[in-house]
Design a protein around this nucleic acid. Sequence first.
DNA 1: ACATCCGTACTTGTATACGAAGGGTCGGTC
DNA 2: GACCGACCCTTCGTATACAAGTACGGATGT
Lengths: 232, 232
Amino acid sequence: MTQVRQPGGARASGAHLVYVELKRRILDLELAPGERLHEPALTAELGVSRTPLREAVRRLIAENLLEQQPTGAVLVPRLDARDVVELYEVRASLEGLMAGTAARRATGADHDALHGLLARNEALVHFRDDAMAAGTAIHDRIGEIADNAWARHLHRQVTDQMRRYKLTTNSSEERRAAALSEHHDICAAIIAGDDVAAADLASRHVLGARDVAVRALGEPGPDAAAPGADAP
Amino acid sequence: MTQVRQPGGARASGAHLVYVELKRRILDLELAPGERLHEPALTAELGVSRTPLREAVRRLIAENLLEQQPTGAVLVPRLDARDVVELYEVRASLEGLMAGTAARRATGADHDALHGLLARNEALVHFRDDAMAAGTAIHDRIGEIADNAWARHLHRQVTDQMRRYKLTTNSSEERRAAALSEHHDICAAIIAGDDVAAADLASRHVLGARDVAVRALGEPGPDAAAPGADAP
DNA sequence: ACATCCGTACTTGTATACGAAGGGTCGGTC
DNA sequence: GACCGACCCTTCGTATACAAGTACGGATGT
């Protein structure tokens, strides 16, 4: 197997393809937390040799999406409710930073874009998944406006991790409405150029989601991932 | 070459040793920014085969301590003044988070420890390197008290990156005195349990260092690394 | 019956060999 | 003299072979 150029221009070596596939499986919980990775089995399944597989695994270890035991065994990290709280708080911190920076840097075009995204969020507030996507779009846009590559890089690490927990903090209509209202306030502060308020509102917005998530973890829902629970 | 147990218990495979050594060379600028890594040369120099070398390089790429061009060539990332600002701001955000959390969690023993570290910082304020180390010890302790593994993990990524820039923000006596004073205020807020003030003070403390660093970059000192400057 | 020791199978870590792509250089041609 | 093309060499990506350490099972002894 040789390396090929993707349409986007980024390289797509076998190792990179394996990395993308393994990462997807981990984040989608197709690889169960606590499960051990067996190189021979994966090489056969993915159709590559051990070398590219190992490179992908090494990268995932570096990203904390896999962990290596002292003996060398590699396994999928277990889910831990403690991580959820920590990740939310870090995310709140980074989003606060980005919102504040965005408030100082946003241009007229950015204001228009935020208005458009807010309108979209409002129109979709009754539809759980669409409202979620619209909210994420607002957050992403704020990150773009802030234009802090390192903040975005670390923020992406955090959100990737959180994806494993399948946290649906806006499953209820009220919660979605509250989130929308908070999005409104955050964007208003950014548009007004009030960086302190924007940072504060954005941070509190995420901490609010943290509280909802923590409560949801206390009373595990239908398909909620129960952190720390091991299937026998 | 086979893997051996380190005293600490962590494994020390050849790949890991190579990782540690390469990381050190990158952070100490022994590998010049912009320089290309040649696998054959490094394997000969480090006495390992390409396999463990490549694994170490992959991990460093994942940590943004190396970057890979579309052609496959791996090189040491160039220094960029823009990164300095971004890294300081992310660091300010994370240290603010940790200081705030520490204010809520600090115990009596933690208060004593902070008092001791402050006294040490004060005693060493006239000695640049020692004062720096004492200041870092305070920051580290706050991170321990906050006990947010993810915040500390990301914070470590940031500080590792910043090490490449050899930023000496406290070279002047006044700056060291100011930093000491700020450390006092931060610790006072933590001990008082005032999380909002602690977060704010810690964040501003780092942003102050950012401003000093930015000014220093404007007027490159004797051995200051000039970001973006390429030696011919 | 339980614990312990040992042997076997497996898994991981490392080295090396091979194929393909990129870059540089030399020569030819306009 | 400058530009273009073909060639070779280097370097990277991948596959495979080998060595060493680990884990599991069974046998054996107390």
